[in-house]
Computed example of a mutant assay.
Amino acid sequence: MSGKISRNTPLIFKIAKEKFTAIEVGIFSPGEVAVESLSAGEIGYIVTGIKQPGIASVGDTVASMNDTLAPLPGYMLPRPVVWASIYPESQDDFTTLKQALGKLKLSDSSYTYEEESSGSLGRGFRCGFLGMLHLEIISERLHREFNLELVVTMPTITYEVTYKQGAKAGKREIIYSPAHFPDEGLLSEIKEPWVNITMITPIAYVNNIMPLLYEHEAELGDSENFGKDRTRLFLKMPLRELMRNFFDKLKSLSSGFASISYEIEGMRKADVVRLDILVADEVLPAFSRVVSRRIVEQEAESAVEKLHNILPRQMFVMNIQGKALGRIISSRKVSAFSKDVTQHMYGGDITRKMKLREKQKKGKKKMKERGKGKVNIPQDVFLKMMRS
Protein backbone atom coordinates (compact mmCIF):
# COMPACT_ATOMS: atom_id res chain seq x y z
CA MET A 1 0.00 0.00 0.00
CA SER A 2 2.99 2.31 0.55
CA GLY A 3 6.79 2.33 0.55
CA LYS A 4 9.41 0.75 -1.69
CA ILE A 5 11.04 -2.70 -1.95
CA SER A 6 14.59 -3.08 -3.21
CA ARG A 7 16.97 -5.99 -3.60
CA ASN A 8 18.37 -7.35 -0.28
CA THR A 9 15.54 -5.70 1.69
CA PRO A 10 14.57 -7.70 4.84
CA LEU A 11 10.85 -8.57 4.58
CA ILE A 12 8.23 -10.69 6.35
CA PHE A 13 5.02 -12.51 5.41
CA LYS A 14 2.54 -11.15 7.97
CA ILE A 15 0.20 -14.18 8.09
CA ALA A 16 2.81 -16.94 7.77
CA LYS A 17 5.23 -14.97 10.02
CA GLU A 18 8.11 -16.07 7.80
CA LYS A 19 11.12 -13.74 7.49
CA PHE A 20 13.17 -13.53 4.29
CA THR A 21 15.40 -11.24 2.23
CA ALA A 22 14.40 -10.15 -1.27
CA ILE A 23 16.96 -11.80 -3.57
CA GLU A 24 15.54 -10.04 -6.62
CA VAL A 25 12.64 -7.77 -7.55
CA GLY A 26 11.29 -7.19 -11.02
CA ILE A 27 8.39 -6.53 -13.37
CA PHE A 28 6.64 -8.46 -16.16
CA SER A 29 7.28 -7.05 -19.64
CA PRO A 30 5.83 -9.58 -20.58
CA GLY A 31 8.65 -11.81 -19.31
CA GLU A 32 10.45 -11.32 -16.00
CA VAL A 33 12.69 -8.26 -16.02
CA ALA A 34 14.77 -7.44 -12.93
CA VAL A 35 14.62 -3.82 -11.66
CA GLU A 36 16.26 -1.88 -8.83
CA SER A 37 13.07 -1.45 -6.80
CA LEU A 38 9.28 -1.77 -6.73
CA SER A 39 7.17 1.13 -5.45
CA ALA A 40 3.57 1.31 -4.23
CA GLY A 41 1.11 0.78 -7.11
CA GLU A 42 3.52 -1.18 -9.32
CA ILE A 43 2.90 -4.79 -10.35
CA GLY A 44 5.86 -7.13 -10.20
CA TYR A 45 7.49 -10.07 -8.48
CA ILE A 46 9.78 -10.76 -5.51
CA VAL A 47 12.23 -13.67 -5.37
CA THR A 48 12.09 -14.79 -1.73
CA GLY A 49 14.48 -17.75 -1.64
CA ILE A 50 12.03 -19.65 0.59
CA LYS A 51 12.28 -23.35 -0.20
CA GLN A 52 9.42 -24.65 1.98
CA PRO A 53 6.10 -25.22 0.16
CA GLY A 54 2.99 -23.58 1.63
CA ILE A 55 4.73 -20.52 3.16
CA ALA A 56 3.92 -18.07 0.35
CA SER A 57 0.15 -18.08 -0.20
CA VAL A 58 -2.26 -15.92 -2.17
CA GLY A 59 -3.62 -13.03 -0.07
CA ASP A 60 -0.79 -12.77 2.47
CA THR A 61 0.69 -9.35 3.25
CA VAL A 62 4.37 -8.61 2.54
CA ALA A 63 5.86 -5.94 4.80
CA SER A 64 9.23 -4.67 5.98
CA MET A 65 10.73 -6.14 9.12
CA ASN A 66 10.10 -2.90 11.06
CA ASP A 67 6.42 -2.66 10.11
CA THR A 68 4.08 -2.88 13.14
CA LEU A 69 0.71 -2.57 11.37
CA ALA A 70 -1.78 -5.44 11.15
CA PRO A 71 -1.96 -7.44 7.89
CA LEU A 72 -4.46 -6.30 5.27
CA PRO A 73 -8.01 -7.53 6.08
CA GLY A 74 -9.88 -10.09 4.00
CA TYR A 75 -7.33 -12.92 4.05
CA MET A 76 -8.74 -16.31 5.00
CA LEU A 77 -6.97 -19.65 5.17
CA PRO A 78 -8.52 -22.07 2.65
CA ARG A 79 -10.48 -24.80 4.44
CA PRO A 80 -10.86 -28.17 2.69
CA VAL A 81 -14.44 -29.47 2.43
CA VAL A 82 -13.94 -32.61 0.32
CA TRP A 83 -11.53 -35.38 1.30
CA ALA A 84 -10.17 -38.28 -0.74
CA SER A 85 -7.24 -40.66 -0.50
CA ILE A 86 -4.83 -40.89 -3.42
CA TYR A 87 -2.68 -43.99 -3.91
CA PRO A 88 -0.27 -44.90 -6.72
CA GLU A 89 -1.37 -48.01 -8.67
CA SER A 90 2.18 -49.29 -8.20
CA GLN A 91 3.90 -48.75 -4.85
CA ASP A 92 7.12 -48.14 -6.81
CA ASP A 93 5.63 -44.72 -7.72
CA PHE A 94 5.03 -43.63 -4.10
CA THR A 95 8.14 -41.39 -3.96
CA THR A 96 7.23 -39.85 -7.33
CA LEU A 97 3.70 -39.12 -6.07
CA LYS A 98 5.07 -37.50 -2.90
CA GLN A 99 7.37 -35.23 -4.93
CA ALA A 100 4.56 -34.39 -7.38
CA LEU A 101 2.20 -33.31 -4.58
CA GLY A 102 4.97 -31.13 -3.13
CA LYS A 103 5.57 -29.42 -6.48
CA LEU A 104 1.84 -28.79 -7.05
CA LYS A 105 1.64 -27.29 -3.56
CA LEU A 106 3.99 -24.52 -4.72
CA SER A 107 1.42 -23.29 -7.27
CA ASP A 108 -1.76 -24.31 -5.42
CA SER A 109 -1.55 -23.97 -1.65
CA SER A 110 -5.31 -24.45 -1.13
CA TYR A 111 -5.15 -28.25 -0.92
CA THR A 112 -3.66 -30.25 1.92
CA TYR A 113 -2.12 -33.71 2.04
CA GLU A 114 -0.69 -36.04 4.64
CA GLU A 115 0.73 -39.53 4.36
CA GLU A 116 -1.43 -42.51 5.30
CA SER A 117 -1.23 -46.27 4.92
CA SER A 118 -3.87 -48.81 3.92
CA GLY A 119 -3.56 -52.55 4.38
CA SER A 120 -5.19 -53.10 0.99
CA LEU A 121 -3.85 -50.25 -1.16
CA GLY A 122 -0.46 -49.64 0.45
CA ARG A 123 1.00 -46.19 1.14
CA GLY A 124 -0.71 -43.08 -0.13
CA PHE A 125 -1.94 -39.63 0.88
CA ARG A 126 -5.10 -38.29 2.50
CA CYS A 127 -5.88 -35.07 0.61
CA GLY A 128 -8.28 -32.20 1.31
CA PHE A 129 -9.80 -30.14 -1.50
CA LEU A 130 -12.02 -27.07 -1.86
CA GLY A 131 -14.58 -29.01 -3.89
CA MET A 132 -15.19 -31.75 -6.43
CA LEU A 133 -13.80 -29.67 -9.31
CA HIS A 134 -10.62 -29.00 -7.32
CA LEU A 135 -10.22 -32.76 -6.74
CA GLU A 136 -10.61 -33.45 -10.48
CA ILE A 137 -8.08 -30.75 -11.40
CA ILE A 138 -5.39 -32.04 -9.00
CA SER A 139 -5.94 -35.65 -10.09
CA GLU A 140 -5.72 -34.71 -13.76
CA ARG A 141 -2.57 -32.64 -13.24
CA LEU A 142 -0.88 -35.52 -11.43
CA HIS A 143 -1.75 -37.80 -14.35
CA ARG A 144 -0.77 -35.42 -17.16
CA GLU A 145 2.22 -33.60 -15.74
CA PHE A 146 3.84 -36.49 -13.85
CA ASN A 147 2.54 -39.54 -15.81
CA LEU A 148 1.16 -41.15 -12.65
CA GLU A 149 -1.50 -43.87 -12.67
CA LEU A 150 -3.55 -43.26 -9.53
CA VAL A 151 -6.25 -44.84 -7.39
CA VAL A 152 -8.54 -42.11 -6.01
CA THR A 153 -10.91 -43.33 -3.30
CA MET A 154 -14.52 -42.27 -3.07
CA PRO A 155 -14.62 -38.57 -2.02
CA THR A 156 -15.93 -37.93 1.47
CA ILE A 157 -16.81 -34.87 3.51
CA THR A 158 -16.30 -33.93 7.15
CA TYR A 159 -19.01 -34.51 9.73
CA GLU A 160 -19.36 -32.80 13.10
CA VAL A 161 -20.68 -35.27 15.68
CA THR A 162 -21.72 -34.86 19.30
CA TYR A 163 -21.49 -37.85 21.64
CA LYS A 164 -24.30 -38.62 24.08
CA GLN A 165 -22.73 -41.45 26.06
CA GLY A 166 -19.45 -43.15 26.77
CA ALA A 167 -16.11 -41.58 27.65
CA LYS A 168 -16.70 -38.72 25.17
CA ALA A 169 -20.24 -37.84 26.33
CA GLY A 170 -21.09 -34.22 25.44
CA LYS A 171 -17.94 -33.73 23.35
CA ARG A 172 -17.88 -32.65 19.70
CA GLU A 173 -15.55 -34.20 17.16
CA ILE A 174 -14.78 -33.73 13.47
CA ILE A 175 -14.87 -37.01 11.49
CA TYR A 176 -12.83 -37.10 8.28
CA SER A 177 -13.09 -40.78 7.34
CA PRO A 178 -16.18 -43.05 7.10
CA ALA A 179 -14.18 -45.86 8.73
CA HIS A 180 -13.90 -43.72 11.89
CA PHE A 181 -17.57 -42.65 11.93
CA PRO A 182 -19.02 -43.64 15.36
CA ASP A 183 -21.85 -46.14 15.80
CA GLU A 184 -25.31 -44.64 15.73
CA GLY A 185 -26.16 -45.34 19.37
CA LEU A 186 -23.23 -43.23 20.61
CA LEU A 187 -24.32 -39.95 18.99
CA SER A 188 -26.85 -37.29 19.94
CA GLU A 189 -26.33 -35.02 16.92
CA ILE A 190 -24.66 -35.14 13.49
CA LYS A 191 -24.00 -32.10 11.31
CA GLU A 192 -22.86 -31.95 7.69
CA PRO A 193 -22.03 -29.14 5.23
CA TRP A 194 -24.72 -27.82 2.87
CA VAL A 195 -24.20 -25.90 -0.36
CA ASN A 196 -26.05 -23.16 -2.22
CA ILE A 197 -26.43 -24.18 -5.88
CA THR A 198 -27.26 -22.07 -8.89
CA MET A 199 -28.40 -24.18 -11.83
CA ILE A 200 -28.96 -22.95 -15.39
CA THR A 201 -30.88 -25.21 -17.77
CA PRO A 202 -33.14 -25.03 -20.82
CA ILE A 203 -36.80 -24.88 -19.72
CA ALA A 204 -37.61 -28.04 -21.70
CA TYR A 205 -35.53 -30.16 -19.26
CA VAL A 206 -36.95 -28.83 -15.97
CA ASN A 207 -39.55 -31.64 -15.69
CA ASN A 208 -36.80 -34.24 -16.13
CA ILE A 209 -34.61 -32.63 -13.47
CA MET A 210 -37.24 -32.35 -10.70
CA PRO A 211 -37.20 -36.07 -9.71
CA LEU A 212 -33.39 -35.89 -9.56
CA LEU A 213 -33.58 -32.98 -7.09
CA TYR A 214 -35.95 -34.99 -4.86
CA GLU A 215 -33.66 -38.03 -5.03
CA HIS A 216 -30.70 -35.95 -3.82
CA GLU A 217 -32.57 -34.16 -0.99
CA ALA A 218 -32.42 -30.74 -2.66
CA GLU A 219 -34.49 -27.79 -1.41
CA LEU A 220 -35.79 -25.75 -4.34
CA GLY A 221 -35.88 -21.99 -3.82
CA ASP A 222 -36.55 -19.25 -6.34
CA SER A 223 -36.42 -19.63 -10.10
CA GLU A 224 -36.24 -17.10 -12.90
CA ASN A 225 -36.50 -17.27 -16.67
CA PHE A 226 -34.10 -15.36 -18.88
CA GLY A 227 -33.06 -15.31 -22.50
CA LYS A 228 -35.10 -17.19 -25.02
CA ASP A 229 -35.74 -20.51 -23.31
CA ARG A 230 -33.52 -20.77 -20.22
CA THR A 231 -34.24 -20.81 -16.52
CA ARG A 232 -32.13 -20.32 -13.42
CA LEU A 233 -32.89 -22.44 -10.34
CA PHE A 234 -31.63 -21.68 -6.83
CA LEU A 235 -31.18 -24.78 -4.68
CA LYS A 236 -29.83 -25.92 -1.34
CA MET A 237 -28.42 -29.44 -0.99
CA PRO A 238 -26.19 -31.52 1.29
CA LEU A 239 -22.63 -31.59 -0.06
CA ARG A 240 -22.77 -35.36 0.48
CA GLU A 241 -25.53 -35.64 -2.14
CA LEU A 242 -23.77 -33.36 -4.59
CA MET A 243 -20.88 -35.83 -4.64
CA ARG A 244 -23.17 -38.82 -5.25
CA ASN A 245 -22.89 -38.62 -9.04
CA PHE A 246 -25.31 -35.66 -9.11
CA PHE A 247 -23.45 -33.81 -11.85
CA ASP A 248 -23.22 -36.85 -14.15
CA LYS A 249 -26.93 -37.59 -13.73
CA LEU A 250 -27.79 -33.95 -14.37
CA LYS A 251 -25.79 -33.91 -17.61
CA SER A 252 -27.51 -37.11 -18.72
CA LEU A 253 -31.03 -35.83 -18.02
CA SER A 254 -30.39 -32.46 -19.71
CA SER A 255 -28.49 -33.83 -22.73
CA GLY A 256 -25.44 -31.95 -21.46
CA PHE A 257 -27.06 -28.49 -21.48
CA ALA A 258 -27.52 -27.92 -17.72
CA SER A 259 -24.71 -26.40 -15.64
CA ILE A 260 -24.26 -25.67 -11.94
CA SER A 261 -22.11 -23.59 -9.61
CA TYR A 262 -22.09 -23.92 -5.83
CA GLU A 263 -20.68 -22.43 -2.63
CA ILE A 264 -20.62 -23.71 0.94
CA GLU A 265 -23.57 -22.43 3.00
CA GLY A 266 -22.76 -23.88 6.44
CA MET A 267 -23.49 -26.87 8.68
CA ARG A 268 -26.91 -28.45 9.21
CA LYS A 269 -28.24 -31.47 11.06
CA ALA A 270 -27.88 -34.71 9.11
CA ASP A 271 -29.76 -38.00 9.19
CA VAL A 272 -26.94 -40.31 8.10
CA VAL A 273 -25.51 -43.67 9.14
CA ARG A 274 -22.34 -45.63 8.50
CA LEU A 275 -22.56 -48.51 6.04
CA ASP A 276 -19.97 -51.27 6.50
CA ILE A 277 -19.19 -54.05 4.05
CA LEU A 278 -18.23 -57.39 5.61
CA VAL A 279 -16.49 -60.28 3.85
CA ALA A 280 -16.44 -63.55 5.80
CA ASP A 281 -17.62 -61.64 8.92
CA GLU A 282 -14.70 -59.19 8.72
CA VAL A 283 -15.28 -55.44 8.17
CA LEU A 284 -13.35 -53.91 5.26
CA PRO A 285 -12.67 -50.25 6.23
CA ALA A 286 -11.79 -49.32 2.62
CA PHE A 287 -15.41 -49.97 1.57
CA SER A 288 -17.11 -48.16 4.51
CA ARG A 289 -19.18 -45.10 3.64
CA VAL A 290 -21.60 -42.65 5.25
CA VAL A 291 -25.01 -42.56 3.54
CA SER A 292 -28.45 -41.12 4.10
CA ARG A 293 -30.67 -43.26 6.32
CA ARG A 294 -33.46 -43.35 3.72
CA ILE A 295 -31.29 -44.96 1.02
CA VAL A 296 -29.02 -47.11 3.18
CA GLU A 297 -30.73 -50.37 2.09
CA GLN A 298 -30.46 -49.45 -1.60
CA GLU A 299 -26.76 -48.55 -1.22
CA ALA A 300 -26.05 -51.75 0.70
CA GLU A 301 -27.70 -53.91 -1.97
CA SER A 302 -25.76 -52.16 -4.72
CA ALA A 303 -22.36 -52.45 -2.99
CA VAL A 304 -22.85 -56.09 -1.98
CA GLU A 305 -24.02 -57.09 -5.46
CA LYS A 306 -21.05 -55.40 -7.11
CA LEU A 307 -18.54 -57.02 -4.76
CA HIS A 308 -20.24 -60.40 -5.21
CA ASN A 309 -19.71 -60.16 -8.98
CA ILE A 310 -15.98 -59.36 -8.84
CA LEU A 311 -14.68 -61.17 -5.73
CA PRO A 312 -12.89 -64.48 -6.53
CA ARG A 313 -14.20 -67.67 -4.91
CA GLN A 314 -12.34 -69.28 -2.01
CA MET A 315 -11.95 -72.84 -0.76
CA PHE A 316 -14.88 -72.31 1.62
CA VAL A 317 -18.29 -70.65 1.43
CA MET A 318 -18.17 -66.98 2.43
CA ASN A 319 -20.78 -64.30 3.02
CA ILE A 320 -20.66 -60.73 1.67
CA GLN A 321 -22.81 -58.52 3.86
CA GLY A 322 -23.86 -54.90 4.18
CA LYS A 323 -24.25 -53.77 7.80
CA ALA A 324 -25.88 -50.58 9.10
CA LEU A 325 -28.21 -49.52 11.92
CA GLY A 326 -26.74 -52.32 14.04
CA ARG A 327 -27.96 -55.13 11.77
CA ILE A 328 -27.24 -56.93 8.50
CA ILE A 329 -29.41 -55.39 5.76
CA SER A 330 -27.98 -57.06 2.67
CA SER A 331 -26.25 -60.38 2.11
CA ARG A 332 -24.95 -62.57 -0.72
CA LYS A 333 -23.21 -65.92 -0.50
CA VAL A 334 -20.16 -66.83 -2.59
CA SER A 335 -19.96 -70.57 -3.17
CA ALA A 336 -16.70 -72.42 -2.53
CA PHE A 337 -14.51 -74.17 -5.06
CA SER A 338 -15.77 -77.72 -5.34
CA LYS A 339 -14.13 -80.93 -6.41
CA ASP A 340 -15.88 -84.23 -7.05
CA VAL A 341 -13.97 -86.49 -4.66
CA THR A 342 -15.91 -89.50 -5.91
CA GLN A 343 -15.06 -89.12 -9.59
CA HIS A 344 -12.64 -92.07 -9.50
CA MET A 345 -15.30 -94.42 -8.14
CA TYR A 346 -17.51 -96.41 -10.48
CA GLY A 347 -20.32 -98.48 -9.07
CA GLY A 348 -20.08 -99.97 -5.59
CA ASP A 349 -21.97 -99.11 -2.41
CA ILE A 350 -23.35 -95.55 -2.16
CA THR A 351 -22.16 -95.33 1.45
CA ARG A 352 -18.52 -95.21 0.26
CA LYS A 353 -19.27 -92.02 -1.72
CA MET A 354 -21.18 -90.53 1.20
CA LYS A 355 -18.19 -91.12 3.53
CA LEU A 356 -15.81 -89.33 1.12
CA ARG A 357 -18.16 -86.36 0.76
CA GLU A 358 -18.58 -86.12 4.54
CA LYS A 359 -14.80 -86.21 4.98
CA GLN A 360 -14.41 -83.38 2.43
CA LYS A 361 -17.07 -81.34 4.25
CA LYS A 362 -15.30 -81.75 7.60
CA GLY A 363 -11.96 -80.80 6.03
CA LYS A 364 -13.36 -77.52 4.65
CA LYS A 365 -14.99 -76.73 7.99
CA LYS A 366 -11.69 -77.34 9.82
CA MET A 367 -9.81 -75.17 7.30
CA LYS A 368 -12.25 -72.30 7.81
CA GLU A 369 -12.01 -72.53 11.61
CA ARG A 370 -8.23 -72.68 11.49
CA GLY A 371 -7.98 -69.61 9.28
CA LYS A 372 -10.94 -67.92 11.02
CA GLY A 373 -12.53 -67.41 7.61
CA LYS A 374 -10.16 -64.62 6.57
CA VAL A 375 -10.10 -63.72 2.89
CA ASN A 376 -7.23 -62.03 1.08
CA ILE A 377 -8.81 -59.45 -1.23
CA PRO A 378 -6.83 -58.98 -4.48
CA GLN A 379 -5.83 -55.39 -5.26
CA ASP A 380 -7.72 -55.34 -8.57
CA VAL A 381 -10.96 -55.91 -6.60
CA PHE A 382 -10.26 -52.75 -4.57
CA LEU A 383 -9.52 -50.83 -7.78
CA LYS A 384 -12.81 -51.88 -9.38
CA MET A 385 -14.81 -50.98 -6.26
CA MET A 386 -13.10 -47.58 -5.89
CA ARG A 387 -13.80 -46.69 -9.51
CA SER A 388 -17.47 -47.57 -9.35
Rank of each mutant, 00 (worst) to 15 (best):
A63M: 14
K4I: 10
Y113Q: 04
E282H: 15
G26T: 00
E189R: 14
V304P: 02
L106H: 03
V272G: 01
A167D: 12
V296K: 01
P10S: 10
D380V: 12
L213S: 01
K374T: 09
G348C: 03
S302D: 15
V273F: 04
K251W: 03
L104C: 02
I43W: 14
K105W: 07
G221Y: 11
D271Q: 06
A167Y: 05
L121Y: 04
D93H: 13
E32P: 00
E114L: 04
N66A: 10
V195Q: 03
F316Y: 13
A336L: 05
Y159G: 06
T112N: 13
T68G: 01
M386A: 13
S110G: 00
I277C: 04
N319H: 12
Q321T: 09
I27C: 03
G54A: 10
R144C: 11
S107L: 10
C127E: 10
C127F: 13
T201Q: 04
S254E: 09
N309P: 04
K359T: 11
V81G: 01
K374W: 02
A169S: 13
F28Y: 14
M354D: 10
L325N: 06
G166L: 10
K368I: 02
L212H: 01
R141C: 02
L311N: 02
E116W: 06
E89D: 05
V58E: 05
A22W: 04
F20K: 10
I320G: 08
D281M: 10
P182Q: 07
R144Q: 15
E369G: 14
I329E: 08
A100S: 15
F129K: 07
S254T: 08
I320A: 04
K17N: 12
R387M: 11
